[in-house]
Every structure is written in C-alpha cells, then in structure tokens.
C-alpha cells in the first residue's frame, strides 16, 4: 500500500512538472468566453459566433473569443450565473434574451433574480416587429373580427414573449380566442399554422412574412410590438386600442421586452475600467463593415447599437416604473 501511494506521489510530481504550466485558463486575458444563453443553432447562437469572430480584434491584446452555450430558462440561467459564479475581469461575457431584465417583475417565480446587478455592454439590434397573424381562410382582417373570432393562437411557453403578446391582446381587447402553448419554436408554430392546427400567433416578424409560403396564407391583424419605422407601420398597434393610461403603460412595458435586441452583459462586479474597455470594443466592432456584412446574413436584423451605459440607464428607468403598472402587466400575461 505504502509503495502504491509512493507511486502516486511520483506520478503527481512528474505530471505537475510537465503539464501544469501549459494548462489553458479562462482567466487569461488571451481568451474571452462569450456565453450565449441559448442552445446551439438559432439566431442567438449565430449572432454570438459572428460577434466572436470580430470582437477580439478590438480588445486589448486581441484575445481569442470563444462561444459557449449555456441554455436554460430563456437565457435566465446564464443571467443568474453572471450574477454569481462568473469571473468579473472581462474574460467572461454573455449574450442574453431581450426580456431577461423584466423577468423578476413579470414572473414571481424568479423573484430572487436581481437584473440590476448585471452590467450591460450594449445591445446590437433594433426591436423587430411582433405581429399577430391569422390564417386567411378564417377571413379575419380587422381587429374587431380578431376580437370576436373563436380560434386558437399558438405560443411556445407561458413565459415566452410570444405568449405575453397573445395574452395581452386577448385580455386588453377582451377577445375570445384561445391560446395553446407548448410549441418548441417559431418554425413549429408556422408549421402548425400551415397544417391548420392553429389559426395564428402573435410573434411574426416582417422577414417571416416575406416568405411566400407564410405571407400568402395569413392576414396581419395587429402589431403587438415593433419600431416606429416598419413596413407594417400602418397595421394597428395593440396599445392604440387601450384607453386606460395604466393599462396602456402595462402593454408598453410588455412591448419593451423586445426593444433592445441581442443584449451583451458582463458579470456582476465588473469594474468601470473593464466595462469601458468592453463597451469601447463593442462600439468599434459595430462600426466595422466586415461585422455588418456578417450580420447581414441574418434576415430581418436591423443593426442598431445601444451602448451599454445608455442601455443600463434605459432599463433602470423602466424598472423604476409604478408598481401598479407591473401588477397590471402581470395580470395581462396570467
């Protein structure tokens, strides 16, 4: 036994002498890990990989930027990790969903999550349209018919933005339609729509409707959220049908869950100096035509950098809203 322990000891020493200095460390400034809060594949993953290709050249020492997927809870899992265990020296940054900042106020189940502890590096794209679409075969073309119609809209989970918009439309308009949840994603929703299992959904973007197979089969009835400038600017907005100021503010709060797209964050406790380096690098990257050319492959993305400081201020202001408005927003999505 003594002999065996001695052998272990010798092996350990030889190993340390040979290999310990060569171990790669995540805390080495030569390597930045960009963690994306979604599974491989999909838009967020692709954006992360494009940013990883470009960001490193604008950071001091030109570190390699690698992507790691940390899916879970619509990127809330990553946001939680960024509040806790991630190093705050700039070697770990994250890409999270656009609604994470409002999660604890809309979903009491995640009430222990403090979004204000996160540091925002910036967001990269403008809010896309979120349109309520209904199959043409139903003959629904107006909001009034949408309100009165007895049909099914689909959504993914009950904490998804698509569900928020459909539910808000149903309650704010006192509509009759039902909402079915548990679809896996937007493509599955569209497939269910095409085969007639659901009548539509409230999460269609302009680029989805450009595809003839979908665009030719649906009517766009309502804009749940979206920018002022849009090819669908003439479609009535949900907020315009609400007279009560508080309720209208609650709907606009929900619209805000799509406002800042592709939000990049740093862990809690990241110093101002490190934040400045990261924000400057992101601004420089956003101005790079090569980056813009790579991002252009993602259909429908309108590039618009919102610098981290500005983003942080905007999100704080939204979270400082009247608690009654949050309560109303929660009622809309219950």
């Amino acid at each position: 036994m003594k002999n065996r322990v001695a052998r272990w000891g010798r092996a350990m020493l030889v190993g340390l002498a040979l290999f310990l200095p060569t171990s790669v460390s995540a805390f080495d400034t030569k390597l930045v890990t960009l963690k994306v809060g979604y599974a491989p594949g999909g838009e967020y993953d692709l954006v992360a990989r494009i940013v990883a290709r470009h960001l490193g050249q604008y950071l001091p020492g030109h570190p390699e930027v690698i992507v790691q997927n940390v899916p879970g809870g619509g990127s809330l899992r990553l946001a939680q990790l960024m509040l806790g265990s991630e190093p705050s020296d700039g070697s770990s940054i994250g890409l999270i969903g656009s609604a994470v900042w409002v999660a604890p106020t809309l979903d009491p189940a995640v009430g222990d999550f403090d979004p204000l502890g996160l540091r925002w590096i910036g967001s990269l794209a403008a809010a896309p349209d979120s349109l309520c679409i209904v199959a043409k075969s139903l003959g629904i073309e107006t909001v009034e018919a949408f309100r009165e119609g007895d049909f099914i809209l689909g959504a993914t989970g009950r904490t998804s933005t698509g569900y928020y918009f459909a539910s808000a439309a149903r309650k704010a308009l006192d509509a009759k339609f039902r909402i079915v949840t548990a679809f896996e994603g937007i493509a599955e929703l569209e497939l269910a729509l095409l085969r007639g299992e659901i009548a539509g959904h409230c999460f269609a973007a302009a680029e989805d409707l450009r595809r003839a197979e979908l665009g030719e089969h649906v009517n766009v009835v309502l804009r749940a959220a979206g920018p002022e400038e849009s090819p669908y600017a003439d479609v009535p907005r949900l907020r315009d049908f609400i007279e009560d100021a508080h309720m209208r503010a609650a709907v606009m709060l929900l619209e805000g869950t799509r406002e800042f797209n592709f939000q990049f964050i740093a862990p809690k406790g990241t110093s101002e100096e490190t934040m400045a380096v990261l924000r400057d690098a992101m601004a420089a990257m956003a101005a790079d035509p090569a980056y813009a050319a790579d991002m252009a492959i993602i259909d429908g993305v309108v590039l618009r950098l919102v610098p981290g400081g500005e983003l942080e201020t905007a999100l704080r202001a939204r979270l400082d809203a009247d608690p009654d408005i949050f309560a109303l927003a929660r009622q809309l999505i219950e």
Binding site: M12, L18, L20, S23
Partner: peptide, 14 residues
C-alpha cells in the same frame, strides 16, 4: 486540482 491535461497524465500514470 491541476486541470485537464495534467490530470490526464497524472491519473493515467498513477
């Protein structure tokens, strides 16, 4: 304790 490369070496040898 020692990282993946050193661990592979030390553990397999030992």
């Amino acid at each position: 304790l020692v990282g993946h490369i050193a661990a592979a070496f030390v553990f397999v040898l030992g």
